[in-house]
Design a protein around this nucleic acid. Structure first.
Lengths: 149, 149
DNA sequence: ATATTTAATTGAATAATATTCGAAAAACAA
DNA sequence: TTGTTTTTCGAATATTATTCAATTAAATAT
């Protein structure tokens, strides 16, 4: 047993997927070369950032999903973008947004369980100047990444 | 001009992408048939729900991104899952979660602009028994769908 | 309006890739 | 051990992506 599963999951998050040109061509009844041309154009324009897999996260040991809301200390307020980028680097972070309202940053996190989550958040709070944080835990994921579950 | 772009964007949200078996095989130095076998297994298990494109949403006219927090009326409280599923059906809804805390549902929305957003939210509030809702608008998307922007 | 340039479409040929099949090896259970 | 199921993987085939060159369409300039 080579346990290729974990390697695949990792690569699928990085990309390693590609459009199905022939299938699209059949679907919208256009020559595949035309589809090819248009897709390459979208990629060059930057409209398409990549292609990746959508998981059932429970099945890959990341069933604990939380939204974390962060308010920075006043002295770090101007560094929100830097801090957001730092947080974005962690692989269990699905998304990071700088937002309007009582909190500066919304982080969507995917962890194995609450222990895993707790360790991660404690580390974040210490590392960056975070005045206040609270979280909402997903009890049921109804839709993710435009895919209905 | 056939304006294939919009059709591609629509199809890419539904899937119409596929893993790059040969590229993965080279990357982790295993035979492509072994990779093929393992991917099909992941799909059968349901761990992989599909493959799709990740966009730079500004580039495809969906630059206005908001998180919408919904509290239901007490008489609709037991219907939260039904309502969440209804909301999930709209194509500009990226994700829907039923969560812990002061609000029952978190919706991540992608709209063209604030007008577009306003029309959508007003419709939602009327249609479902929503006691209270508030939103946070993304000023800057730092990471989405595990992709750094 | 017409010439000029640029962008988009497409078929044919080729290159690359996915898939099927069957056999062998490994893991697992009784 | 023995039989059963799962996983690996090479060879052959089927399918798909990509390149190229030519045509057409669209945009732009004169």
């Amino acid at each position: 047993m080579k346990d290729i599963k974990q390697k695949l999951i990792k690569l699928f998050k990085e990309g390693y997927c590609t459009p199905q040109i022939a299938r699209i061509a059949k679907k919208i009844k256009e020559p595949s070369t035309t589809i090819h041309y248009n897709i390459k154009k979208l990629e060059k324009e930057g409209a398409v950032r990549g292609y990746n897999a959508v998981f059932d996260y429970k099945e890959i040991g990341l069933g604990y999903c939380t939204y974390l809301f962060i308010r920075l200390n006043t002295e770090n307020y101007d560094k929100s973008e830097d801090i957001a980028k730092q947080i974005a680097k962690y692989e269990n972070v699905e998304s990071v947004d700088i937002v309007t309202g009582q909190y500066e940053i919304i982080v969507k996190l995917r962890c194995k369980d609450s222990d895993d989550y707790y360790v991660f958040v404690q580390r974040l709070l210490k590392k960056y100047g975070i005045a206040k944080a609270f979280s909402m835990t997903s009890l049921k994921q109804v839709k993710t990444e435009f895919v209905n579950l």
